[in-house]
Amino acid sequence: MPTVIVEVMPKEVLLDPAGKATARALQRFGDGEITDVRIGKRFEITLNTDVTPELLEHIGELARDVLSNQVIEDVTSIHVAD
């Protein structure tokens, strides 16, 4: 069964408090090579049918309308898993 992977990230220009706090924590373990962390979400959507362009478009709509909040997030990737 094919799986479609959707990735959602906080909008680049907005503050990402979770990423910021995590970056600070990681920096304590390193030598300054880590400069930033941003935390997003990954959705793995399993289908019971072949992926068609129409279906992919439909998933894209769902990603924009349901899986993400377009005011503060962007859908950064929609692709079929290998």
Binding site: K11, V13, L14, L15, P17, I72
Partner: peptide, 11 residues
Amino acid sequence: RPAVQVGDPFA
């Protein structure tokens, strides 16, 4: 630029 702000209560 977005019109919204994101809050960080920890900060």
